[in-house]
Design a protein around this nucleic acid. Structure first.
Lengths: 224, 224
DNA sequence: CTTTTGTATATTGTATACAGTATACTATCG
DNA sequence: CGATAGTATACTGTATACAATATACAAAAG
């Protein structure tokens, strides 16, 4: 008998496509803070009916990317300093936990991957290709997540990252900061490689604090 | 002119009522792990149409209380040791963060409330009224949350607590453990009152680890 | 008797319809 | 001219209808 199996992952309900589409639009700023999400309009634009749009909005609501007002509908959640501080405060301890777990589970091949990613990051910094820097930065954190063996933690970090991406675009453009990313990552790699939990946590927290300062600076500058 | 204002909080969409109802049913075990959530059946039982039921399920899905299978529908998420460990691992660092923030913001009147709650807990332990112990235990943690000034953290802790409640019912029944709750809470109160971040974090983490052991014990016993 | 195939039924996925509320605009009154 | 009431429109909330897929059972073939 031939071993055939339908890949259930191939079928994606419209609601999930709509969900991802809207989420992306919010994160990139295509849909701006305060902008209303009108079901019929979105349904027409996406070529679907209201039902999948509504279901997608329910999910965005729980992720905190949209705010509901009864009988008025959804609007894109505002971005502000308080929200950013809250998210980063939480992200700091969760990334720290991820590093702690990474220290426990790390294998030589993981370290090799970390270093490979960081080499690519360094290259991207030299070429000043912002998109590539961002991509490699994400890859680096993902590489850490992948060895935590805590799926829920990974999921939560992904969710937080979505929120941060709404701010971070500006941050990463700030040239002064780019060189430090590679150095910071290097310190984190060394700490994890030597299974030094305390150092790994300290470094990742510092790494996020640096980000926080830059993003907040950008925010404050923009507000002026 | 009379200052009248419609209270928008009074209107609650059916989807939210259904959501809360189903969540409660899952947490209490009314809906058992693996049980299918069939839309028409639930809609009939609740006296509503499928639409609000579906939207409620979308939220439960994102909270991780139900698992979706494409074109087959939702079923109540299983409870198992891995999931519990993951949730507790995360909860530990988030409760710890809550304590840290509480240390920063604590006022004398907050400490008074903590002690009032703990006195009630002690009373409940003496009377061996399990329901009251649980209620006061929740109140204690809520009291800490309320001074963190991080709404997102509070929301996340609530979500995690839902998951833990699915296990904790058994744990709290175990008499041997009851006395220690009051002692542990006392240590946490003292640490927060004296703004000793390190001690507060240590004590809350230990507090959760004790819980973890008891719950895991119960789980393993049941599995046999 | 076992396996396969066909068919009926149940269930989800998606679209549409209807009802009620909010919003914007216009006309009327003071 | 300003304020208020009336009316039309737009939008959400909820229910229902239709389509496609999954499941269960029975009949037929081997």
């Amino acid at each position: 008998m031939v071993n055939l199996k339908v890949n259930y992952d191939e079928y994606i309900p419209l609601r999930d496509i709509v969900f991802k589409t809207l989420r992306e639009a919010i994160i990139t700023g295509d849909l701006k803070p305060g902008e209303r999400l009108m079901e019929i309009k979105l349904a027409n634009e996406l070529g679907v009916s209201r039902t999948p749009v509504r279901e997608a909005i329910r999910k965005l609501e729980l992720e905190g990317l949209v705010i509901m007002t009864a009988r008025k509908g959804a609007e894109v959640a505002p971005i502000n300093e308080k929200d950013l501080r809250e998210v980063l405060e939480i992200r700091k301890v969760l990334e720290s936990l991820a590093c702690e777990l990474a220290c426990k589970n790390v294998q030589p091949e993981n370290v090799a991957l970390f270093e490979e990613i960081n080499a690519k990051t360094e290259e991207a910094v030299k070429n000043e290709t912002i998109e590539e820097i961002t991509k490699q930065d994400v890859a680096f954190h993902e590489a850490i997540y992948s060895i935590t063996k805590n799926d829920r933690l990974v999921q939560m970090l992904h969710n937080l990252k979505e929120h941060i991406f709404r701010y971070r675009l500006e941050y990463i453009k700030d040239m002064k900061n780019k060189g430090t990313i590679v150095e910071e990552h290097k310190k984190i790699i060394d700490a994890i490689a030597s299974k030094n939990v305390r150092a790994a946590c300290k470094e990742i927290e510092r790494h996020i604090e640096v980000q926080e300062k830059y993003i907040l600076n950008t925010l404050i500058k923009e507000a002026k």
